[in-house]
Amino acid sequence: MDEIINNLILELRRGTLMLSVLSQLRERQYGYSLKERLAEQGMDIDQGTLYPLLRRLEKQGLLSSEWDVSEARPRRYYVLSASGQEVLAAMITEWQQLVKVMEHLLPQA
């Protein structure tokens, strides 16, 4: 039973992953700083999942990235692209509607 619950929780979190990441990239972030920022707000994402996800979102045109070599070590910074901002706005609207529906569907704790 525990395994089923864990798998379902994973599925549920996986659905929110992309939205969580996009929401934190209005300002530019590099992989590790983004991971820490999400973790501080309660959204723990495996590094092995987050870093490839950033690449995929960039490939889809939702993020743009650039190398910053001015610091002690080179870092790749990601930020929302114009189409990423558009997608994020649409996703936020959809999410808010979904939350409303789920609040009606689920019994109050």
């Binding site: 590790y32 870093y51 690449r55 870092r75």
Partner: peptide, 15 residues
């Protein structure tokens, strides 16, 4: 990817 991964691992090790 190798360059980025190296940089990210070093960040994690530092932290």
């Amino acid at each position: 990817v190798e360059t980025e991964l190296r940089s990210l691992i070093l960040d994690a090790l530092e932290a």
